[in-house]
Design a protein around this nucleic acid. Sequence first.
DNA 1: ATATTTTGTTAGTCTAATCTAACATTATAT
DNA 2: ATATAATGTTAGATTAGACTAACAAAATAT
Lengths: 219, 219
Amino acid sequence: MNSYTEENYLKALFNLANETGEVNVNELSKWLEIKMPTVTSMMKKLAEKKLVHYESYKPLRLTEKGKKEAGLVIRKHRLTEMFLVNKMNFGWEDVHDIAEQIEHIQSPVFFEKMDELLGYPKIDPHGSPIPDSNGKMIWKVYEKLSDCKVGETVKLLAVINTSSNFLKFLNSRELQLGLKIKIKSIEAFDKSMVVSYSKRQNESLSQLVTERLLVEKDK
Amino acid sequence: MNSYTEENYLKALFNLANETGEVNVNELSKWLEIKMPTVTSMMKKLAEKKLVHYESYKPLRLTEKGKKEAGLVIRKHRLTEMFLVNKMNFGWEDVHDIAEQIEHIQSPVFFEKMDELLGYPKIDPHGSPIPDSNGKMIWKVYEKLSDCKVGETVKLLAVINTSSNFLKFLNSRELQLGLKIKIKSIEAFDKSMVVSYSKRQNESLSQLVTERLLVEKDK
DNA sequence: ATATTTTGTTAGTCTAATCTAACATTATAT
DNA sequence: ATATAATGTTAGATTAGACTAACAAAATAT
Ligand SMILES: [Mn+2]
Ligand SMILES: [Mn+2]
Ligand SMILES: [Mn+2]
Ligand SMILES: [Mn+2]
């Protein structure tokens, strides 16, 4: 079994991995707010456990085993978030910190029950995919709203940033997943967009917002 | 804030306290399966935090503050058990170990939500009272089934032992809280009882069982 | 009353996970 | 090409929570 702490490192390694699966000690250190020497020594420990490929001064990489175990922690996190939103009436802006703790509960049946009660969901409340029970995650390829063109109508399917502040902002504009959004105009100067959706006909969204909204072209 | 470990010590002190509120180091040590020197040093730490009255070689006693904080941990434990049974379809024999972990989640709103969804329950799935949000627990005075007399009809309201094995035994006899039980006879030799309840007319229960069932005389 | 057993404390060690200070390597800028 | 900055490692210290061994006090038995 991996400790609470080890599980958090695995998750971070998985989430920070670039296209080639690499993570630098420094990034990981900053992300976890844990000093580099501590990270180095944990990486050696995870390497002992065959969860991480570690070589001095080289970027870090999860092993297949490491990826699987990380995937399973992320699965527990996302199932929990879904459960908190769908079964306990939490807002999507309030679930991350609780899930950050509950993901470490040691009880397979507890998460199986969540999964069952939720009807085996494939995505979490923020549109992120929930890894299957082997830790495998299937990433859908979405487009950023900021990359769409005037006149297009798209469906909002996920958010990139899941900070409470950003999600509260989306709440205040009644922006939620599943919504159809039409792009009415784009300001050349700052790339801000004027869009319409549901009852809102002239919402202006800054680029900071539009590049954090993941959409699919409406077919 | 108290640590995960401290919370478990507080809960144990509360549960092991005798009529005068005292607990011996040795008892606590055996209960927690932690060696006495470790317990002694933790007691000194909790005394520093004004949670325990500690004097060398004297029995341990929670302070008022300690009782309150212990009560709040027990509240979280019992709310969790109730949630697992009523909202997640777990059996009463399967919830203790999960609650033992979830009771340490740091998120007041998480437990408030449970409480709300459950409709502010006063007892847990085993009939134990749930302390209020100030940590205050109100003990109802129940009678042991083993202390009742032939001919009496009683209502099953709580179980003393909550081990999975005992609860599974009760399941196998369809014995559940709320049931009306009539005492048909008591065997003088071994104090075993023949009782009837629901569709069962001639169930024999050993004294080991009857002294673990808490009942109220039917009025 | 004294010996024995049980209970409790002290002192010192260990492991997991953190830190700082100092040093080493790699990357970047001039 | 070399100096400087950024990144990474090593060594050693710290804290929480556990342990064992040895000793001390209290309770119990003879
Ligand atoms: Mn999250
Ligand atoms: Mn976490
Ligand atoms: Mn319990
Ligand atoms: Mn616990």
